[in-house]
């Protein structure tokens, strides 16, 4: 038996909206430590890793480890039927072929349940090592969204370079070129409006803007986003989802032929 209840159901709605265009399907792996997902996009250049801890839920029970194959477009259709203020409970019997989603309005006068058909999905589980990065940058998630959106209108790829001067995003295209530089800035009173640059060594990598732009669909989940960069390795774009866990996007760099 698996059961997970979250009072702030809007978090689940936002999570699925952030993922559904990038990954069409994937396994929700549930265990007594929580719920996780690893899924690649269809072109296999990026990876989504979602971790939701059991203690972040208002109630969590998982008697047996299970992999629940989810079609995210279908899950999104069901979650759109939940109110933003609703409490959401996920439930499945052991070896079930469906996941039940129960929505409760705050006033308790409306309760609905939907069953989502589960799929059988073969998925490769990748071992992602914990590692030190050459540069880690925390910035307002709205700022990241604006940068990648603006640059997407100019070019297809972005060169991200982190130096002691700051972090620079550069692109070029038919209309011309663009450079946006952010400096370490802890002046704003609100921590979520600050920019932190932790640089161990300068690094410069090129990425496809289309994907970086797609990752910014997770902006409603967190006020800040963390970018981690190391030479020749995928960038990590990480959103902390309150006390519940995190969603991380990994994107392979573009390298010279």
């Amino acid at each position: 038996m698996f059961e997970a209840r979250i009072t702030q159901g809007s978090v689940l709605k936002k999570l699925v909206e952030a993922l559904k265009e990038l990954v069409t399907e994937g396994n929700f792996d549930v265990s007594n430590t929580g719920l996780s997902l690893q899924a690649m996009d269809s072109s296999h250049v990026c990876l989504v890793s979602l971790t939701l801890r059991e203690d972040g839920f208002d109630h969590f029970r998982c008697d047996r480890n299970m992999a629940m194959g989810i079609h995210f477009g279908n899950l999104s259709k069901i979650l759109k039927c939940a109110g933003n203020e609703d409490t959401i409970t996920l439930k499945a019997e052991d070896n079930a072929d469906q996941l039940t989603l129960m929505f409760e309005a705050p006033s308790q006068d409306r309760i609905s349940d939907f069953d989502l058909k589960l799929m059988s999905i073969e998925s490769e589980h990748l071992g992602i090592p914990d590692q030190d990065y050459s540069a880690e940058v925390k910035l307002p998630s709205s700022e990241y969204q604006r940068i990648v959106r603006d640059l997407t209108s100019i070019g297809d790829t972005v060169l991200i370079s982190a130096t002691k001067e700051g972090i620079k995003f550069s692109t070029s295209g038919d209309v011309g070129t663009a450079n946006i530089t952010l400096r370490h800035n802890t002046t704003p009173e609100k921590p979520e409006e600050q920019t932190f640059i932790d640089l161990k060594e300068p690094v410069a990598l090129t990425f496809a803007l289309r994907y970086l732009n797609n990752f910014s669909k997770a902006t409603p989940l967190a006020p800040q986003v963390k970018l981690s960069l190391t030479k020749d390795l995928p960038i990590v774009v990480e959103y902390q989802v309150g006390e519940l866990g995190s969603v991380r996007f990994y994107l392979a760099p573009k390298i010279d032929d």
Binding site: C46, H125, L126, G127, Y250, A252, K254, I255
Partner: peptide, 13 residues
């Protein structure tokens, strides 16, 4: 420029 698949960077388990 080319792009390696993401699973080339992480070992499978």
């Amino acid at each position: 420029m080319k792009q390696k698949p993401i699973n080339a960077f992480f070992g499978g388990s």
